[in-house]
Structures are given as structure tokens and as C-alpha cells.
Design a binder for these strands. Structure first.
Lengths: 150, 150
DNA sequence: TATATTTAGTGCGATATCGTACAAAAAGGT
DNA sequence: ACCTTTTTGTACGATATCGCACTAAATATA
């Protein structure tokens, strides 16, 4: 009789998958027209980490293949949220900058997401969430390294 | 000057997105040929929760749209991992059962994933992971309900 | 019973994701 | 300087995802 009790690791990654699914669906339900959670992620990243980074750096930050990021960025360009300038230090590369519209849209998205987050925040106060972050971040960093090695 | 410091909620969902990305990529790198993390999830679910459930119930469990689950299940059928029988209690519905091959493949997948999990388990012992699960599960359940209401 | 509403699953179309292969530039080795 | 290897971004094709619309069956209502 083989094991049917799942190891906590499977449960963990299963929960993470579902949480990702749910949070994405919930966010996108509140975003305007064709805006996607991936676009939101990029805009947020640019504001937080700083503009002027390259597509590859962004892809690495989100741990998605660079082709995926190319596609996502082209979607942002099509929506007029970002612009791609040549990289003065590397002719192969590009630099990503927010447009004014992109900054504005990001503000709106944050606001929209925040209202949707209200109920959530009531049940899960900031300090409770913050308590989770170190472990999750540590796991992320570990898997990040493992990805290169394994 | 608008806020650039992200709320812990954004960080949380960002980490979850990346963790999902990484764990999926890591798992699929160890799966045979065309097998996908979604297939693995379905097989695992059938073993854990029990066979004979319906496509819709599985879709709800993973919180994906039912069309997505239809597609995933048809992939499993094409790989000979599951079979769909008519639901004796509801002629519209189907019941999902593992095939012998499906059970075998699931065993192999679990083994393959487990070897890849070895390093991870060293750094994150079971009890550390278990300590995280209640909060994550609670969040999942909350968002689950919120999805219907909002 | 007859009709309306809800529910389960699927076909279809649009789009996202991602692996492969590629071109151009950069970096390293001779 | 020349050649090789690595790196950056992209085009392309295959497949996954998912919203919409539909059929058939079940359920609720008149």
C-alpha cells in the first residue's frame, strides 16, 4: 500500500499554486480592460526597484523565461505604459522606462487592488503577513539558486 | 510624492507568484516528456482526495476555470493517466478515475519530485514548513470565499 | 405537467506562456 | 586582430489558459 498522505512539501506548493491562482483572478477582476496581472507586476517592479532596468533583469526578478517577458513588455508598450529605449551601455539591450500614463495606471491599479484588499487586510493584519514573509522569501531565494544548479 | 514602499500584501502575493513559477519550473524539469505540473496536480488530487470525483469538483479544488480543467483532464486522458466514466447520479456529469498507468506515473512523479526536494528539505525541515501551512491555508480559504462574493 | 432557471461539461477563439532557434553585440582566448 | 563563446533580445511555433456561448440534464417554479 503506497503512501497517500501527502508530504507537507506537496501541500505547501499546492497551496502556493492555488493562492497564486486566486490572487491573480481577484486582481484581474479589478483591473481595467485588457490589463493583466503580469502588467501590474512589471509596473510595480519598475516603481519599486527603479526604472531603466533591462528586460532580462525583469525576467529574472519574476523568474519567468525571457521570451515571456518580451511578450509581457510588448503588451505594456502596446498599452502605452512603458517605453523601451536603447541601452547606452550595451547595444544589444534595452532600457525600460515608465510613461506618464504608465505611472498613472499603476497608481490606479494600486488603488483598485487596495480596495479589494480591504477585507483581506482585516482578517490578516500587516504584522501577521510580515511574519510570513521571511520564510517565503528564503524559500524563493533558495529555489532561485537551485534553478541554476539543478 | 506617491508611495513607493510596497505594502506587505503586494510583497506577499509577489513572492507567492514567484514561488509558484519556480516550483512549477523545477517540477516540470523532472517530469517525463509532455507531463505538466497541472497533470501531476490532478493525479495527486485523485490519490489524496479520492477517485470518482467530477471535473467541476477538481476545478474548484484548484480554483481554475472549468474550461481549463476540461483541457487539463483531456490531456491526462490522452496520456492514458485517467479515464472518464459517466456519472451514475447525474447524466450531465462525469467521474474521473485513475488508470493503472496513471497510478504508476503518479508514483514515479512523486519519487522524481522527492529527489528534487531533497536539498530543499534539508534547508526547510518539515516542521518549519508545517508551521507555515495554517496561515497559507487560511488565506486560501478566505480568498476562496471572497472570489464568490466580490 | 409545463416552463424557467440553474448546472455540468465542452467547442471555439483570443491571448499568455514558453522552448527552440536565431541575429547581433559583447566578452574572452589565441 | 581573429575566432570562439557568451549574452541580449526577438521571431516563431506549440501548447496552456480562459472567457464566451452553447447543449443537455437537473432543479425550481407556476
Amino acid at each position: 500500500m503506497p503512501d497517500t498522505r501527502p508530504s507537507p512539501y506537496f501541500v505547501l506548493f499546492n497551496e502556493i499554486g492555488i493562492l497564486h491562482q486566486l490572487s491573480r483572478a481577484l486582481l484581474e477582476a479589478r483591473l481595467p480592460d485588457g490589463l493583466l496581472s503580469s502588467h501590474f507586476g512589471v509596473l510595480n517592479h519598475l516603481v519599486r526597484v527603479g526604472e531603466g532596468t533591462t528586460p532580462l533583469a525583469i525576467a529574472r526578478a519574476f523568474q519567468v523565461p525571457k521570451t515571456t517577458m518580451t511578450h509581457t513588455l510588448s503588451g505594456c508598450v502596446k498599452h502605452g505604459l512603458i517605453e523601451m529605449r536603447p541601452n547606452p551601455e550595451d547595444a544589444r539591450s534595452k532600457c525600460i522606462w515608465l510613461t506618464d500614463k504608465g505611472r498613472q495606471v499603476r497608481e490606479d491599479m494600486v488603488a483598485a487592488a487596495a480596495t479589494g484588499m480591504g477585507d483581506f487586510a482585516e482578517h490578516f493584519p500587516e504584522d501577521k503577513v510580515e511574519a510570513l514573509l521571511p520564510a517565503l522569501t528564503e524559500m524563493r531565494q533558495f529555489l532561485d539558486k537551485a534553478r541554476d544548479e539543478i
